[in-house]
Computed example of a mutant assay.
Amino acid sequence: MTGTVRVVAARRYGTLSPLRYPGGKAALAGLFADVIGELGVRNCTYVEPYAGGAGAGIALLREGLVSRLVINDIDPAVHAFWHSVVNHNAAFVDWVMEVPLTIEEWRSQRGVYRSKPADLDQLGRAFFYLNRTNRSGVLNAGVIGGQDQGGRYKIDARFNRSTLAGRICALSEFAGAIEVTALDGRTVIERHRRRRTSFLYIDPPYVHAGSQLYLNAFDGRDHQALAEAVNRINGAHWLMTYDESPFIQRLYGKHFQAALDLNYSARYPGKASELVVASEQVGRVLTESSEACRASAGA
Rank of each mutant, 00 (worst) to 15 (best):
D121N: 13
A126W: 04
N43S: 14
G145N: 00
G150Y: 01
V112H: 06
M240Q: 02
L69V: 06
I155D: 07
G30S: 03
A90G: 02
Q147L: 14
A182H: 06
K154L: 07
V5M: 05
G151Y: 02
A10I: 00
V285Q: 14
T45Q: 08
G30N: 08
L19W: 05
H88M: 06
D243H: 12
H223I: 12
Y201G: 03
L164W: 04
S265V: 15
R135D: 00
F92R: 00
N134I: 00
A26W: 15
I178S: 12
R135Y: 14
S296M: 14
I71S: 05
G24M: 04
A90H: 04
G24F: 13
S265L: 11
P18Q: 03
Q149Y: 03
A91W: 01
S172P: 02
I36W: 00
S108A: 08
S290A: 10
V70N: 01
R195P: 04
V138S: 01
R135V: 08
Y13A: 04
V96P: 10
N234M: 09
R191P: 06
R267K: 05
F159L: 12
V78S: 05
V112R: 11
V276W: 09
L183A: 11
I36A: 07
L65P: 00
W106K: 10
E274I: 09
R125W: 06
G166C: 13
S198G: 07
A225W: 06
G176F: 10
R196D: 13
P117G: 06
P246H: 01
R267S: 13
Q281D: 15
A236F: 11
W95Q: 03
A272T: 13
L251H: 04
I103M: 12
E63N: 14
H208E: 09
A299K: 11
F218I: 02
V7P: 01
A59D: 13
P76M: 01
G176C: 11
W238G: 03
V66T: 06
Y206P: 05
K116N: 06
V86T: 14
R186I: 03
I144F: 11
D94T: 08
V85G: 02
F218T: 09
E104P: 04
A170W: 03
A59T: 01
S198L: 07
S136R: 07
A295M: 11
E63K: 07
R68K: 15
P22F: 09
